[in-house]
């Protein structure tokens, strides 16, 4: 059985020490090919040379941060692999940053400090529980709804496009009351 040695992972981080930590974890579990890139442009170049199976990218990078890099992969006209699974590492766990990461099109997010377990668990998630891919004019990336696809959702409607539905619901309830 080919196993983990058949995997090709690209690690993108401008900090060589954080890169070496991630690479050590990946090599520790015998992942076949582990490539490194120090920034987004470097990573794009590496990706043109051969398709990685998974990209692990840091959020906080200079000059191109992880969010921009992810958007470049997902929507760039010259992007070689727009559907590639992306795992983002970040020390920012504020809600706004997590939402921004999700909206850029990442598959999984891993909070720093990272451990072997947290990183490997995310790798298991992208391999064993892949999500549908959504392409719209506003968003390209894995489906942001986890679980049952929202069919059973009974909470508030939050999209701008839901305004009409909200108005219809409110009219219906008024009619029922009358």
């Amino acid at each position: 059985m080919p196993g983990l040695s058949s995997l090709h992972v690209l690690v993108v981080d401008d900090n060589p020490h954080m890169r070496s930590i991630v690479v050590a974890i990946l090599r520790g579990v015998d992942i076949g090919i582990v490539q490194e890139a120090s920034d987004g442009a470097d990573a794009m170049e590496v990706m043109r040379g051969g398709a990685p199976d998974i990209v692990i990218v840091d959020l906080n990078m200079f000059p191109i941060d992880g969010l921009e890099f992810t958007k470049m992969i997902r929507t760039g006209v010259d992007s070689p692999y727009p559907f590639i699974p992306i795992i983002m590492m970040t020390g920012h766990t504020e809600r706004s940053k997590v939402t921004a990461a999700r909206d850029s099109g990442v598959n999984e997010l891993v909070a720093k400090p990272i451990s072997a377990k947290t990183l490997l668990d995310r790798i298991v998630a992208v391999i064993d529980r892949p999500r549908s891919f959504v392409q719209t004019t506003a968003y390209t990336g894995p489906c942001r709804r986890r679980g049952g696809g929202g069919k059973e959702f009974a909470g508030k409607l939050r999209r701008k496009s839901d305004n009409k539905a909200k108005a219809e619901q409110s009219n219906e309830s008024k009619e029922e009351t009358a």
Binding site: P2, R131, S161
Partner: peptide, 21 residues
């Protein structure tokens, strides 16, 4: 609910599982 933009949904890929066996 009204849709503002057309949505293309691509089924999840189990390519990596196949590759790993």
């Amino acid at each position: 609910m009204s849709a503002e933009t057309p949505v293309e949904l691509i089924a999840p890929s189990f390519r990596l599982q196949r590759k790993m066996g």
